[in-house]
Amino acid sequence: MTRVVRRRYLALKVDCDEPLEPSALSDVIWNAVLRLFGEVGASQAGLYLVRFDEKSGVGVLRCFHTALPMVRAAVASITRIGNLKAVVHVLRVAGTLKALSRKEGLVSERSR
């Protein structure tokens, strides 16, 4: 049976003066999507923070491929995380985690 839902994996890099917890990043992305596209938009995005390395500030976010423009816009609109000035860059987008790791060497499959 074919998979109906196609996903996209976004490699993210957070620039912030202090280290962040994964939950803080997840919350701020959810809030940005909710603020820009509302609850219906957020429910169609399929957002999930797959992993986030607090030291390097690099993480992987998953979303539905139909919601990719929305998610990219929401991520780019982030200017603060909590009280800290922050910016979240999208480094790469791929269809699978394996492809993401091949493209950038950012995500180790073994660390899943």
Binding site: P69, A73, V75, A76, S77
Partner: peptide, 9 residues
């Protein structure tokens, strides 16, 4: 690319 994504708005 992030600015291009913002322009989607």
């Amino acid at each position: 690319r992030d600015y291009a994504a913002l322009a989607f708005l």
